[in-house]
Design a protein around this nucleic acid. Structure first.
Lengths: 196, 196
DNA sequence: CGACTTTCTTATCATAGGTCAATGTGGGGA
DNA sequence: TCCCCACATTGACCTATGATAAGAAAGTCG
């Protein structure tokens, strides 16, 4: 299982098998059942998760009881709760598993310690965070400018395999529209002879 | 001017005056006129800006010619273009100066080189990026869940001083609503005897 | 295989916010 | 000083999407 992570690392930075062996003893693998809660809003967590297989998500629940999905984390994606990592503060979001999932769990200082042994781990950390920002900027841009249909088309283009794995009401929640609206959008697309 | 940046750094990480002197020779200060363009969409830039005074912004223009503000960067904030930094790819966004601005300009590998001399610069880089993610997650959550009025109230709470400095149509653009809607929201708030 | 729960669709109606157009208004440059 | 011009406001109207409700379909699990 850890080899998935090793392969991922080696694709990103120059790290040898020997170096990986030196840092990998700090890593723990944890499994989550489908629908298992990982972190509640209000709890403090400074763990970082790397998904080996399965699907995690972070989300909020607003004052009317509606849930809003902040992020999906399928295989080879990262998930963490920044309030905890940065300031040991309470989480604003919930984390849970949409599917049965195996993930590597790292304490927040894993990267620091790993970088002491393998300096290029700093580059990985930095490029991973920059990349997350890049994705979020695009998402913000979409939320600012796109219609329901444009959002959905963008989503299935960006995450074709999530489109199949995730219930539609979750996609709607990620796109910032209601499940009913998404259903209408899909109907219209079908009517326009759209094929995914 | 550089002392502003030194103070900022010293508030965040343990860096001595001597260490700062060692890395600061790589830093250049650049000034921008009000409304001066910094980067066009489609250009490649791997610079990182740290605003000393003034106000920068990044934004997009959609197919209908509407602009959408991705980020404001007032004093002591960072601004950069991640496509260039990560992959030397073209920018999806425009960068410009809303006010006359002085900013430190760093090449993308400044942090790497600085960290070679002052290791704690890695921590700064990491916490700065994590913090950016934290803010963007909150913004996404707001865009997913909040009404125009809630967005505006949140904005003036979060950025009271921007509220005064920035024209309302830009705030509207940041909030994902039209200037007309913002104007109506403000009228309603005034009618409810709301005071900022 | 049923019975139950969750998800999806569809229809109707309601509304927040967008669009368009006209009018105010205030600050900076010649 | 006065004249623009960018910005803000307002009103009338419109539309995409939300709310509600009900039924159909599709999983899930004993």
């Amino acid at each position: 299982m850890l080899s998935i992570f090793k392969d991922y690392l080696q694709k990103k930075v120059a790290i040898t098998d020997e170096q990986f062996a030196l840092i990998s003893d700090k890593l723990k693998i944890k499994s989550f059942e489908k629908n298992e809660m990982i972190l509640m809003k209000g709890e403090v967590s400074s763990h970082v998760y790397f998904v080996l297989n399965g699907l995690l998500r972070s989300y909020s629940i607003d004052s009317k009881g509606k849930t809003h999905i902040i992020q999906f984390a399928p295989e080879l994606w990262w998930l963490s709760e920044r309030n905890g990592i940065l300031f040991n503060e309470e989480s604003e979001f919930f984390l849970d598993a949409i599917e049965r999932t195996s993930a590597i769990v790292m304490p927040k200082d894993f990267f620091n310690e790993a970088a002491r042994i393998v300096p290029c781990m700093n580059d990985l950390n930095s490029s991973m965070l920059n990349n997350a920002i890049r994705f979020m900027q695009r998402r913000i841009n979409m939320l600012l400018s796109a219609t329901a249909e444009e959002r959905y088309l963008n989503f299935i283009h960006l995450y074709p395999n999530l489109t199949l794995r995730v219930p539609q009401w979750m996609i709607a929640s990620y796109l910032g529209i209601t499940p009913e609206s998404l259903s209408r959008v899909r109907k219209d697309l079908a009517h326009k002879h759209f094929r995914p």
